[in-house]
Amino acid sequence: MISDTTQVIDSLAATQSGGEDTSWILHHILDSKYILGVIPSPEIYLFGIDLTITNHVVFMWIAAAILFIVFRKVANSYKKSLTPKGVSNFMEVLILFVRDEIVKPTIGHGYEKFLPYLLTVFFFILTCNFLGLIPGGATATSNISVTASLAVISFIVTQAGGIMKNGFFGYFKGLIPSGVPGWLLPIMGIVEFLGLLTKPFALAVRLFANLTAGHIVIYALLGLIFILKTYYVAPVSIAFALFIYMLEILVSLIQAYIFTMLSSLFIGMAVHQDH
C-alpha cells in the first residue's frame, strides 16, 4: 500500500520533472501581469492593494472600449433615421431582446430604472466572453474576482432597488413571507438573509465556472497531443476542441443571458415583494 503510494508520487514527480507539467493550462486561464502574455505591466501598489493593470483588466477595458464605440455608433445612427440598418439593426435586436424578453417580464412595472444597468451587464459579459474566444485573448469573466465583483454590483443594485421601492424597514420586513408563526420568525429571518447572500454567490460561481470549464477542456484536449507525444491523437483532439469551442460560443451567449436574467429576476423579486 505504502509502496504503491510512493510509486504514484514518484511517477508524478517524474512526469513533472520530465516537462509534462500541466500547470500551463492554469497559466493560460489565470490572470497574469503580462499583458497579452508578453508585455510586462508595471506593478502599482496603493494602500497595500496590488492595483497592477493585469491582463484581465486590459481585456475588460478592451470590452468596454468596443462597447462604447459600437453603441455610440448605434446611438448616432438613430439620429439619422428611426429605422437604422446594418450593425445598428442587429444591436437593436439584442437590446430589444434584453428589454422585452428579460427585463420587462421579470421586473414588470417600473423596469425602466434598471434597464441601463441590465443592458450594460448583458453586453459587458457577452463581450468579455467572446474576447476570451479569440486566440490570444483572455476571458476576464473566467476570473472569480471579476464575476464576484459583478455579482456584488448586482446584489447592491437589487437591494437598493428593493429599499428604494419599499422603504428600508418595509423591504427587510417584506423579506419574510407573511403568515409565518411567531416562533419561526428568527429562523426564517436567518434563512431569508442567507438566501439574499447566496444569490450573488451563485451568480458569481456560475459565470466563473462555466467560462473556466470550457477553456480548461479545450486546453486539456489540445494538451493530449503534447502529453501523449504523438501526432495521431491530433485530429481527435482538434475535432473535440473545435466542438467544445462551438459549445463555448453557445455558453458565452447563454451565460450572459442567464446572469442578466437572474439579476433581473432578483431585482423584480426585491422590488415587487408581494409576489
Partner: peptide, 26 residues
C-alpha cells in the same frame, strides 16, 4: 486589485453607456 479594477471599469462603462448609448437608443 482585480475587484477594484472590475468595479471601477464597470461603473465607468455603465455611466458612459447610459449617457451616450442607452438613453438615446431607448
Amino acid at each position: 486589485g482585480l475587484i477594484v479594477w472590475t468595479v471601477i471599469t464597470f461603473i465607468f462603462l455603465l455611466l458612459i453607456l447610459m449617457k451616450f448609448a442607452w438613453k438615446p437608443i431607448l
